[in-house]
Write a protein that binds this DNA or RNA. Sequence first.
DNA 1: AGCACGCCGACT
DNA 2: GTCGGCGTGCTC
Length: 730
Amino acid sequence: MNQLFAQVALPVPMRSLFDYQVPSSLQCSIALGMRVLVPFGRRKLVGVVLGLSPDTELAAEKIKTLETLLDDACVLSDLTLEWLNWASQYYQHPLGEVIHTALPVSLRKGQPAVRQQKAWQLTDAGRDTEPASLNRSPRQRALLERLASAPQPHALLLQDFTSSLIKKLTEKGLVEETYLEHLPDPDWPARIELADKPKSNLEQSLAVTAIAHGSDRYSCFLLEGVTGSGKTEVYLQAIEPLLAEGKQVLILVPEIGLTPQTVQRFELRFGLPVGVLHSGLTDNERMLVWQQAREGELGIIIGTRSAIFTPLQSPGMIIVDEEHDSSYKQQDGWRYHARDMAVVRARLEGIPLLLGSATPSLESLNNALSGKYQHLSLKSRAGGAQAVRHQLLDLKGQKLEFGLATAMQQRIRQHLQAGHQVMLFINRRGYAPALICHQCGHVEECRRCDRSYTLHRSLNKLQCHHCGDAKTVPPHCTQCGHVGLQPVGLGTEQLEQGLSSLFPGISTVRIDSDSARGKDKLHSLLDEINQGAHQLLIGTQILAKGHHFPNVSLVVILDVDGALYSADYRAAEKLAQLITQVAGRAGRAHIQGELWLQTHHPQHPLLQDLLHNGYQHFARLALQERRFAALPPFSYQALFRSEANEARQAHEFLMQVKGLLAGRQGLTSIGPLPALMEKRQGRYRMQLLLQSEHRTGIQQHLHGLMSQIEKLPLAGKVRWSLDLDPQDFT
DNA sequence: AGCACGCCGACT
DNA sequence: GTCGGCGTGCTC
């Protein structure tokens, strides 16, 4: 037989495929998209076959032979491979690692992909036994005859025989255990039982009709619906006709939004089991949902970020709920954005994509306003919850204790005395902030860019993260001459320790990603809160997501300025989303909720706009600002990060990367600058930001650059990575 | 990324 | 005399 070589993608951080000789015994059965076990160095790796060819460019002595063919059918379809290949190019991440992330852990480890079920078959002795010889035990005889023609699944046998009977024949050596491939049973469309649905309003009906109109091809919808406007009801009605046709629906939700109630709502409406994928599952549980989805046995699959990789036999629609949520962006390794991956997947599969949010990302909103996506709005709020009152507290010249103004402390006391709960929001700590004058509120700004400087304590410098300009820290305010400029948000870090002295005897609880880590930890904390075990709640973004706090009557956001004057240009957008989400969650019909913002700039146009005109209006204003500043979504970015024990090395590496890009048209590079969190775990972190007006600009320049970078001597010494469409500059 | 090889310091 | 530190280099 002729020689055959397989090009295999392996989970290693290298941008090449690896050639292996295919043993002649496997040449007939091997195909693209199957997994193989191959020798690699002195270990064995599971890889995926991406090419088959009668020849290879590699020297014969280097070629090894693949060890095992792990599948008899492909685990990744042509379409999926095309999708992942695109992703590997777009994110400039090695294809082998991309494929590795897209597979469930069990498959990465080489476990079989087909679902197996326990079954029973006759042994040689069993086949030689005359059924008549068992005439004295008719049940045993019946079982023997049942197995005579073919092995039978365990579950099926139990309908007619007891397990002790099977055991008896096993002990006699006539019957033995075996495994049969599970036969898919995709007959759920026939079992749909629609529950009563609420009467939908005009906006909802319009949205559902619009979606139904485009449901047989790729199209993208942005459903912009204020909190409580019934987005989920639109999802339910939009997928109803698809499910009836036997089409499957994949729903992505934020990490924190995947509650039993969410899942139940879909289950109850259609009377169907829903496949659920989240981080708390075991490898086997994930694998089962993956298999059921692939075999078409599930109509609805709900999951967090990585659920975007769930294979579907007959895809009907993808829904991304709370599409603005930052948990859709992977923050290490391959930094993909599940929402963006969903757009490309929907286009390849030729199915509609529905993005829903009360506070859409500026990216999606821009696509909707420019007509790239269809824009659907839900503006009326169902139910009678009272709107939360928003108010601003001017911090200029105020006495602050642990970041709280005296007037605010009194207000908090009033609410506590009334028996209500109070929620205090602080931004994540450790960020490089702007420098602000507490007397007049003046913020040092870069003259060239009109943007605030960022304070980098270790260098004792102000740096503009927009153009890279640096200057020394001024001794006094350039506006009013006041001496003693302070970083924005000073004191809020000590808030938690200070609360016990400010509010003695009041039970305080902190909720952030650390304290809420672990299975069900967050939920038990939330239960405690709603049962009234704590009166003062301190938290970050996590508190605002998807949970209701009926007894909270006062919400305070301590350092609004931190977001208004952050080097992270998305901070204002995130703040606006936070405020809007919180306003939708606190209080209840009989308690008038209050939301207070502490700021040195109560007249700031973005704040004023948000408070008076709401998120929808604010977002459009913010988009205009982005357009003027040529920031995303009106430009495209890629961020190189580097990290080393010595700041010099991290900096020098990025200087060399910048050097490789020198003189390229249509591409600007900013930096290297210290990361907003300059140091982490004792290592210095620097960043180099690339920006282009066109997406293809970034792509073209990155093409080929990565392999050049890998050849730099420093590339092996510093930890470095590329983040495409960066969302977070920490 | 792993995993080896390789060449310099404190220990049974 | 060795155990072990992590720098460097390779993996079809």
